[in-house]
């Protein structure tokens, strides 16, 4: 599987956000973000089409003890 690379990270941080980043740090970020994104992707397999972020507050209310 292809992963995020340092050049892509540098383009996002430097080019889009205007936040300076060294090549070495960009490489570290690329590795870290790839691991995080893969972890979220694996977890997201359980999502249904209709799941949305705002539903979280309803879950808290529904799981409160009466």
């Amino acid at each position: 599987m292809a992963t995020l690379d340092a050049a892509a990270v540098k383009a996002v941080l430097d080019g889009i956000h205007g936040v300076a980043v060294t090549d070495a740090r960009a490489a570290e970020i690329a590795r870290d973000v790839t691991v995080l994104a893969q972890g979220v992707r694996a977890a997201a397999a359980r999502l249904s089409f209709e799941d949305e972020p705002q539903a979280f507050r309803g879950v808290l209310a529904a799981n409160a003890r009466r």
């Binding site: 995020l4 990270v9 996002v12 941080l13 956000h17 936040v19 980043v21 740090r25 970020i29 690329a30 870290d32 973000v33 995080l36 994104a37 979220v40 992707r41 977890a43 997201a44 359980r46 999502l47 799941d51 949305e52 972020p53 539903a55 979280f56 309803g58 879950v59 808290l60 799981n63």
Partner: peptide
């Protein structure tokens, strides 16, 4: 800095998961 490089879709997936995971 790491947070600025996380894709929007990854962030939103993490938020979508919050309800079912909880």
């Amino acid at each position: 800095q790491t947070g600025l490089a996380i894709p929007a879709a990854t962030y939103l997936e993490a938020l979508r998961l919050r309800g079912p995971v909880t």
